[in-house]
Design a protein around this nucleic acid. Structure first.
Length: 362
DNA sequence: AACGCGGGGTG
DNA sequence: CACCCAGCGTT
């Protein structure tokens, strides 16, 4: 704890240095031109575990489609999910809708103006509550995201494992001490995150041009590469998805995913998941209806295996395209519905499915 | 406290 | 390939 004694002296300098760096290096981002709580909230939900470059076009599209919290509250949830398509972590879109409805209907369209009030809303956790409270309402609530963990761990030489609950408390307390020294918490919060994103990067930070170099514990002891400490590694589960794509004329059979699994409330095809790669499916005991479709249908195509990688899963998918002759009455397996092209386009789908459909056009 | 949840960028 | 991104909700 040898940094504690000089903390009072150093924290003012830390905040001042960061905000000074920020004014000179900040990127011009659309959500930095507003203090509208709705716009800020929208940007923060989109940016949860999402890079600025990936989230930015979504922010523009959402704001164009739903300029107000009332318009989002009145939206069909499927349309929100469709607009969210490709961003991942789809429960964010559903929680966003719940919060929009709550704010529009119970709070007369006005977001809570405090950290504690914001924290109660669906999809708003400690980070997002602090971001909105500071950016929109100038509350001295410190954001603690991946950038802040990294910057604080390095500058103050904190080697607590950031995946633990203890670390959450330690970093949050330190961040909240530091923000007290700033007379502009909104700018300070933006600054420390921007600093982490641009200067104090995860891999090979450019310490030689860093304004905090001489007060950085990690630099002074050569431990940049070791900090922050993160113990847990991601275990990837391998899964085999065999999709039966049933097509009749220009209609395709889709199904909403309702299980407690990935892609909840998105749409895909008739899915047979197996423990091993599957080469033939005509013997599968998957029910009379599917067997009928497979018997009467004509195999029009079999895709190569496509690998779709998620954080915790590696999905190996193959697509069997089955054509059912037009005019034929087809009873589809449970849950599947024939969709015309315009409906297929309009429904939210995993990127794996959207990409396959795109490849079908050619 | 541990786990599940996407898709993409980067070195 | 590994790492991780303006995290949150559930168990």
């Amino acid at each position: 704890m040898d940094w504690f004694s000089d903390l009072d002296d150093s924290k003012t300098g830390f905040a001042t240095t960061l905000t000074g760096w920020y004014e000179h290096h900040k990127r011009d981002l659309p959500w930095r031109h507003t203090r509208d709580p709705y716009s800020i909230w929208l940007s923060e939900v989109i940016l949860q575990q999402t890079r600025v470059a990936q989230g930015r076009p979504y922010y523009e599209r959402f704001l164009a489609a739903y300029p107000t919290v009332q318009s989002m509250a009145g939206a069909d949830e499927r349309d929100l999910l469709r607009l969210w398509q490709g961003l991942g972590y789809y429960s964010r879109a559903r929680n966003m809708h719940k919060t929009a409805q709550y704010v529009a209907e119970k709070l007369e369209g006005r977001f809570p103006e405090t950290y504690a009030g914001l924290l109660k809303l669906p999809g708003i956790g400690p980070y997002t509550a602090a971001a909105i409270a500071s950016f929109a309402f100038n509350e001295k609530a410190a954001v603690v995201d991946g950038n802040v963990y990294r910057v604080l761990a390095r500058v103050f030489g904190i080697d607590v494992d950031i995946t633990t609950n203890n670390a959450k408390k330690i970093f949050s307390e330190r961040a909240n001490q530091l923000i007290q020294a700033s007379d502009n918490p909104a700018t300070y919060n933006q600054a420390i995150m921007e600093f982490g994103a641009i200067q104090c990067t995860p891999v090979s930070p450019d310490c030689l041009i860093c304004p905090l170099q001489q007060r950085c514990r990690a630099y002074l002891t050569g431990r940049q590469r070791m900090l922050p400490v993160k113990s847990k590694k991601t275990a990837v589960r391998e899964r085999f998805f065999n999709y039966i794509v049933i097509r009749q004329g220009d209609r395709i059979a889709l199904k909403e995913r309702t299980a407690k699994d990935i892609w909840q409330h998105l749409y895909d095809f008739c899915l047979i998941e197996t423990e091993e790669p599957m080469e033939a499916f005509r013997e599968l005991p998957e029910g009379k209806v599917l067997n009928w479709v497979l018997q009467e249908g004509i195999l029009k195509g079999l895709s190569d295996e496509r690998t779709h990688v998620l954080s915790h899963q590696k999905i190996r998918a193959r697509f069997w395209l089955i054509e059912v002759p037009e005019g034929r009455e087809v009873q589809l397996p449970e849950g599947l519905i024939f969709c015309k092209p315009s409906d297929t386009e309009r429904l939210p789908k995993p990127i794996l499915i959207a990409d396959y459909l795109k490849s079908l056009q050619f």
